[in-house]
Measured scan of single mutants.
Amino acid sequence: NKFNKEQQWATYEILNLPNLNEEQRKAFIDSLKDDPSQSANLLAEAKKLNDAQA
């Protein structure tokens, strides 16, 4: 299913963002699990935070 693929991709991407700390990473991944339909939005937020902390 589409959300499952998006969720897996977003999880992979978030795990590989270098500037997030473990707590932030875990929070994003927990949110992905809670609502896979928000995968794209959550990934965008994670990338923004990652860039802000660069």
Rank of each mutant, 00 (worst) to 15 (best):
S37M: 08
E13R: 04
L15R: 06
L43R: 03
N19P: 00
K5S: 12
D35P: 01
P18F: 04
L32K: 00
F28T: 01
K26N: 09
E13V: 14
N1L: 04
W9A: 15
K48G: 06
D30W: 06
Q53F: 08
P36T: 03
N19Q: 04
D30G: 09
L32W: 02
E23K: 11
A40L: 13
A27N: 13
S37F: 06
E22A: 06
D51G: 08
N50W: 01
N21W: 06
I14D: 01
D35I: 04
T11H: 15
F3H: 10
L20S: 00
L20N: 00
K2I: 14
E23N: 11
N16G: 10
Q53W: 06
I14H: 01
L49N: 02
I29R: 03
A40V: 14
D34T: 12
S31N: 12
P18E: 09
E45T: 10
E23D: 14
W9G: 04
T11Y: 15
N1E: 09
E45V: 11
F3Y: 10
S31M: 15
S37R: 07
A52K: 12
Q38D: 10
A46L: 01
T11R: 07
D34R: 11
L17M: 15
N19G: 05
Q7D: 07
D35R: 09
K48D: 08
N4H: 14
P18Y: 05
P36I: 04
L42N: 03
A40Q: 12
F3N: 09
P36V: 05
L43K: 02
K26T: 11
L20K: 00
D35Y: 07
K48N: 10
T11E: 15
P36K: 03
A40K: 14
D34E: 14
I14Q: 01
N1H: 13
L20R: 00
N21F: 10
W9P: 03
D34N: 09
F28R: 00
E13L: 06
N21Q: 09
D51M: 09
N50Y: 01
K47H: 08
L20T: 00
A52E: 13
N41Y: 13
L15N: 13
K5G: 07
R25K: 15
L17I: 01
T11G: 05
Q8Y: 10
L32S: 02
K48R: 13
K5V: 06
I29N: 03
A40G: 14
D30E: 12
Q53H: 05
E45A: 13
A54Y: 06
A44L: 12
N50R: 01
N1R: 01
Y12A: 14
N21M: 03
L43G: 01
I14F: 03
N1S: 02
A44V: 11
N16W: 07
L20F: 01
E23F: 11
T11N: 06
D51N: 11
A10V: 13
L42S: 03
N41G: 10
A40P: 05
Q7S: 05
E23S: 10
E45I: 12
S39L: 13
I14W: 02
E13T: 09
E6I: 07
D34G: 10
Q8G: 05
E13F: 07
F3Q: 06
Q24S: 02
K26S: 09
N50H: 02
N41P: 06
Q8D: 07
D35H: 12
A27T: 11
P36Y: 04
Q38M: 13
F28G: 00
Q38T: 06
A52R: 09
E6H: 05
R25V: 08
Q7G: 04
A27E: 12
Q38Y: 04
I14L: 05
K47R: 03
N1V: 04
Q53M: 09
A40S: 13
P36D: 03
I14N: 01
A46I: 02
S39E: 04
K47S: 07
L15E: 14
A27G: 13
Q7W: 12
A10S: 04
E23Y: 12
N21A: 09
F28L: 05
E13S: 06
K47Y: 13
A54F: 08
E22G: 07
Q53E: 04
I29L: 10
Q7R: 03
L43D: 00
L17K: 00
L43I: 08
Q8T: 11
Q53A: 06
N4S: 07
K48S: 08
K26A: 11
A46W: 01
L43P: 00
K47W: 11
K2G: 15
Y12V: 10
D51A: 14
L49M: 12
F28Y: 08
A44Y: 06
N21T: 14
N50L: 00
P36W: 07
Q24A: 02
Q24L: 02
A10F: 11
D30V: 11
W9T: 07
K47N: 11
L43N: 01
L20M: 02
L43E: 02
L49T: 07
K48I: 12
A54N: 13
N41R: 11
K5R: 04
Q8M: 14
L49E: 03
N19E: 04
K33H: 14
R25E: 01
A44I: 13
N16F: 03
L32Y: 02
T11W: 15
L15Y: 08
A40Y: 11
Q8V: 10
D30I: 05
D30K: 09
A44M: 15
L42M: 12
E23H: 10
Q38I: 08
A46S: 02
Q24I: 03
E22M: 13
K48Y: 10
N16T: 09
P18G: 05
Y12M: 14
R25F: 03
N50D: 07
